[in-house]
Amino acid sequence: MNDPTGSAGDAPSDVRASDIRARQDDVATISQMLIVPILGVAVWYVLSWTVFVVPAPHEAVRALVTDLGKGQYRSDLLRTLVKIMVAFSAAAILGIVIGTFLGLAKPLREALAPLVLITNGIPKIVLYPILLIVFGLGSISQITMGIIFGTLPVLVNLMSALASMRPVYRKVARMLEVGPVRALFRVYMPAVAPLLMVALQLGFSLSVLGVVYAELIASRDGLGQRLIQTYTIGNYDEMAASSLAILFIALGGTGLLRLVERSIVRHR
C-alpha cells in the first residue's frame, strides 16, 4: 500500500550508495513538506489573476511591510497582541485550575458535566454584545471574549486527560504515601503533560479567535478592527496584509507551544 520512500530491494555494498539514498530521502521529505505551502501560494496567485478584487501575494506582503512602518499600525498590532496574550494567560490559568479539579474529582465532574457540555456547545460570540453593554468598547471586552473562548478547550481537554490517566499512577502515589499536592505536581501533571500542551495550543488559537472576532464586530482598536475598516474603505491590499498579520500571530504562538510540546514528549 504505502511504499516507503527509498528503495526496498538490494542492500548497498558500499557506503556511498547508502549516503546518496539517505540524501534522497531527506530531499523527498523536505519537498513533501514544502509542496502544500507552494501550492497554496500558487493557488493564491491564480485567484488574484482571475478574481479582480483579490490582491496578489506579493502586493499583500508589500502592504504589510509598508504598514509595519507606520506607528499607528504598529500600535494596533501591539494592542491586539497584548489582548491575545492576556486573554490566553487568563484562559490557561482558569482552564488548568478548573480542569484539574474536575479531572481528578469524579463526583464533581459528573455533577458539572452537563454544565460543561452545554457551555461548550453554545456559540459564545453571542455573549459579546452583553460584554459590550457591561464593559463598553474597550480592550476589556475583547480580552474577556478571548478568555471565554480560550478557557473551555483547555478545561475540557485537561479534564478528559486527567480522568483517563492510567489509574496505576494514582495507586503508586497512594502506596508511596505521596501527599496530594506533591502527587498533583510530580505525578498527575507530568502524566498528562503532552495532552496539556495540546490543550494549550487549542486554547491559544481559540483565544486568538475570540479576540479577533470581537475586534471585528466592535472595538476601539486592534487588527480585527483594521480588517473591517480596510474592507469598508476598499483598501484590499491592506486588508490582505492585516489578515496575514493575524495569521502569523496565530501560527507563531501555536508553533512556540508546539516546540514546548516536542521537548516534553522527547523521551516518552
Binding site: 496505576v168 495507586k171 503508586v172 502506596m175 503533560a193 523521551h267 516518552r268
Partner: peptide
C-alpha cells in the same frame, strides 16, 4: 506495604 503492580507503573517522564 510495598506494591508491585501487574501493569506498567514506571513514570515515563523520569
Amino acid at each position: 506495604l510495598g506494591y508491585v503492580f501487574q501493569e506498567e507503573s514506571v513514570f515515563p517522564w523520569r
